[in-house]
Amino acid sequence: MENKLKLIIAELFGVEENTIQNDSGVVKGDILNWDSLGQLQLILKIEDSFNVKFTMEEIKQMQDYSTILNMLTSKTIT
């Protein structure tokens, strides 16, 4: 799942996968194009890829890599 997630981020923002480290606090703004528009596009793409759906509140929180990963994990487990 992590690899797939990294791949999505890498593809969407046109960066190398290894720039996204598990425990690094990659956040909106660290990556070029990861702006508010990019963030929403990322969440929607994650939803499609993992067949999950986030609430507005969750989307608002998902501003960095580790939060996104945590949210996604909690969705896919339940």
Binding site: L37, L40, L44, K45, T55
Partner: peptide, 16 residues
């Protein structure tokens, strides 16, 4: 349509 997108991004459409 995706109402979340309407509220969060002022764009009424879903990704698809």
């Amino acid at each position: 349509f995706d109402h979340r997108m309407g509220y969060l991004a002022k764009s009424p459409y879903s990704n698809a």
